[in-house]
Computed example of a mutant assay.
Amino acid sequence: MNLPWAARREPEAGGPRIAVIGNCQARGLAEAVRILVPDARVRLIPMGTLGKKERSLDAFARGLGDCDHVFSQPFPAGFFPEGDSDALREKLPRMRLFPALVFTAFHPDAVYVGDLSSVARAKLAPSPLGTYHSAIALFGFLQGLPLERIVGLFREEVFARLGYLDAWDGAAADLIASSRAIGFDLSTELLRWSRGGLFMHNINHPRLAVLGDIAARLLREAGLTPRTVPVEAYAPDVLLDDAIWPVYPPLATLYGVSGSTVFKRRQRRGAPPETLGLEAFVAESLAIYRTLERDRLTCHRVEHWSGSPEIRALFSRL
């Protein structure tokens, strides 16, 4: 049954035209913009599509010429032969950069494994959660430990020795430094987010409320007047469909948030969630590692641990 009043209402023709360019965080930010400025005509441009339709930066900039505002995360050279996001900003003076959010304190064990030399062409090793790996599981595998020994390492004493319980200050400093580097200082926002509890799904997937804060600030700085509403009350958090890394119980106690060792796989939107307990997650990780060449299992964290006699002794202890 078609109900005329149930049809989706299109934005008013006179609303601002806004392009949002970015990684997986950009979709949530674009949705937040639609809620905060309901007559906006919002165009989402995933970073992974850059350079595929418009082959040159000039052509891409021309395609954005009819936009009143362009909000973009920094992107590196490699997508376009003429340069990176700074080169695009020279062609689009009204373009505003916003940071790609990474905050590791809640999930200090989560790492990427593989070739990180190019964001545009990253060759990452697969894991049960897409591309997110446990540094403990990987190092245990490389040390030749069996499943039960690796699972037994997920305890407070080991976390403390690895620095997991002291990760907040470093994670905060890294986030603030990266945001200040593009002129979008997040120190005030980080203080507010931290007072609200857990604000990340994993190391680089913020909750929708965080993206709503950034969207509102971008709109204000662009001279627009966003609604003063919490976007998370009006839209689904699309990053909930992606991988969710748990906050391990000792860390959860430290930060006053809910903790577990239950991991959630990436899922198709609308599909039921599939979760893994700690032992199942580690077992599946080890099974994947056995199928890969050793030179694909590269990780800066693990390389650092390999050079530490204290950490090697921690993993070899009965």
Rank of each mutant, 00 (worst) to 15 (best):
N23R: 00
N23V: 00
N23K: 00
N23C: 02
C24K: 01
Q25N: 08
A26Q: 04
G28W: 02
G28R: 02
G28Q: 03
A30F: 02
A30W: 01
A30I: 01
I35K: 00
L36Y: 01
V37D: 04
P38N: 10
D39M: 00
A40D: 01
R41F: 00
R41Y: 01
V42R: 01
L44C: 08
L44D: 12
I45S: 07
P46D: 01
P46L: 00
M47H: 04
T49G: 08
L50H: 11
L50T: 11
G51W: 09
G51Q: 12
K52D: 11
K52V: 07
K52F: 07
E54C: 06
R55V: 07
R55E: 15
S56D: 09
L57S: 10
A59E: 15
A59P: 04
A59C: 05
A61F: 09
A61E: 13
R62H: 09
R62T: 11
G63S: 11
L64D: 13
L64E: 12
C67D: 14
C67W: 01
H69M: 04
F71L: 08
F71W: 03
P74A: 13
P74Y: 08
F75D: 12
F75K: 07
G78A: 10
G78I: 06
G83I: 10
G83V: 10
D84Q: 08
D84P: 07
D84N: 15
S85N: 09
S85T: 14
D86H: 12
D86T: 12
D86N: 13
D86Y: 11
A87P: 10
L88V: 13
R89G: 15
E90D: 14
K91I: 06
M95A: 14
R96H: 10
R96A: 13
L97R: 11
L97E: 14
F98P: 01
F98N: 04
F98W: 15
P99L: 05
A100S: 12
A100F: 11
A100K: 04
L101C: 13
L101V: 15
L101G: 08
L101Y: 07
V102R: 13
F103A: 12
F103Q: 07
T104Q: 13
A105E: 12
F106P: 09
F106H: 13
F106L: 14
F106S: 11
H107A: 06
P108Y: 08
P108H: 09
A110I: 08
A110R: 03
V111P: 02
V113G: 00
V113T: 02
V113R: 00
D115M: 06
L116A: 11
L116P: 03
L116S: 11
S117D: 14
S117Q: 11
S117R: 14
S118E: 15
K123Y: 00
L124S: 10
A125P: 02
A125I: 02
A125R: 00
P128R: 02
P128W: 01
P128N: 05
G130D: 10
G130S: 10
G130P: 05
T131Q: 13
Y132C: 03
Y132T: 04
Y132W: 05
L138V: 05
L138K: 04
F139W: 12
F139P: 05
F139C: 09
F139D: 10
G140M: 01
F141T: 03
F141D: 06
